[in-house]
């Protein structure tokens, strides 16, 4: 039997179904935890509306949006990370490290700063997505010529520093110190205390972005051969770049607008899953999206189980796990970096 059979859609299908199963199971577990722990039976009762009204309210109104946002954030970050790594042909690409998330955060902060959300709530995700798009385009322009690890990371550092500096400037000039504290906390990244209002605000864009990214999958495999050979195999490079740049900007921008910046998911997840899809960048996309959701959900459960004086922010937890991981990757590819 050849690997064309073995690695045919059945291979990734099994993996994706496995990830999906874990994701559903973990979602039920996540619904159990909160200020009033529920049993699995009570969770199911609350979900189906067969249990007491109190359980229905807790599960459906308070905890379900949190699970839904964990899914959306994870799907967006996991898929974008894998897609950007494929496009830039570099395993260190990630929306957070490359400054796409912080640029989206800047867009959101500016909207909040000027109080234009009063006009329409949709301005918030729109601004975040627009800033994420500008950042992604800039990044691509900077690294296209020859994206070795060093130029890529430097471009990312430059972009996130710039976005960070402008965000600080906005906060520095803000007239209302109380509001500033809220925004700073929000920027740290969290999916707690959110409602279906926020889910609705980012859901369409995350799904649209995800769709664009998944459409790029076959061409992304061919891009392993380099741009020239891929083009002669019929890959439309402009379309491919467009799909990934817009797909990442939409999905990441929309989630950042709601949850703040959550880093490293897009770096860690593709790295862990790549070997299970035979290292094919196109096949990695869906698996990485599901894996991203799984990781965010797991992190969100973990921070609720930890006995800390105040609940930790999700972005803080992913950074605490992700940054050392990133450091390890850098150390391993050190020769390549220098």
């Amino acid at each position: 039997m050849t690997s064309m059979d073995g690695a045919s859609p059945r291979g990734p299908l099994t993996l994706n179904l496995l990830l999906l199963g874990l994701l559903l199971a973990l979602s039920l577990v996540s619904l159990r935890f909160g200020s009033a722990p529920l049993s699995l039976g009570e969770v199911v009762g609350g979900l189906l509306g067969t249990g007491p009204e109190e359980h229905r309210l807790i599960v459906q109104q308070i905890r379900l949006p949190r699970v839904a946002l964990a899914w959306l954030v994870g799907l967006a970050l996991g898929a974008s990370g894998a897609a950007l790594q494929g496009l830039l042909r570099n395993p260190l690409a990630e929306p957070g490290l490359l400054g796409i998330s912080s640029s989206a955060g800047l867009g959101a902060v500016l909207v909040l700063y000027f109080g234009v959300t009063a006009i329409s709530l949709w301005i918030l995700p729109a601004a975040a997505m627009a800033f994420a798009l500008v950042a992604t385009l800039l990044l691509y322009a900077l690294t296209r010529a020859g994206s070795n690890n060093l130029t890529l990371i430097l471009a990312g550092v430059a972009l996130s520093s710039l976005a960070g500096a402008l965000t600080s400037l906005a906060l520095n000039l803000a007239p209302d110190p109380g509001g500033v504290q809220d925004i700073v906390l929000w920027l740290l990244g969290s999916i707690s205390d959110l409602s279906f209002e926020e889910v609705r605000l980012c859901l369409p864009f995350v799904l649209l972005g995800l769709g664009l990214l998944l459409m790029a999958a076959p061409a992304l495999d061919v891009l392993s051969l380099g741009e020239a050979e891929a083009a002669t195999l019929g890959v439309d490079l402009r379309r491919l770049r467009g799909l990934i740049i817009f797909g990442s900007a939409l999905s990441v921008g929309a989630t950042v607008a709601v949850t703040g910046t959550i880093g490293f998911v897009g770096l860690v997840v593709p790295h862990l899953l790549r070997r299970f899809v035979a290292y094919r960048p196109g096949r990695l996309l869906l698996a990485s999206a599901l894996g991203g959701a799984l990781l965010v959900l797991a992190a969100d459960i973990a921070l609720r189980l930890l006995d800390t004086p105040r609940e930790l922010m999700l972005g803080v937890v992913t950074a605490l796990v992700g940054a050392p991981f990133f450091l390890g990757l850098v150390l391993r590819s050190r020769r390549d970096l220098l």
């Binding site: 690695a7 392993s224 790549r274 035979a278 094919r280 960048p281």
Partner: peptide
């Protein structure tokens, strides 16, 4: 220029 460690057959 092949970037990822894909298998010969996949290549």
């Amino acid at each position: 220029v092949v970037q990822w460690p894909i298998t010969v057959e996949d290549l």
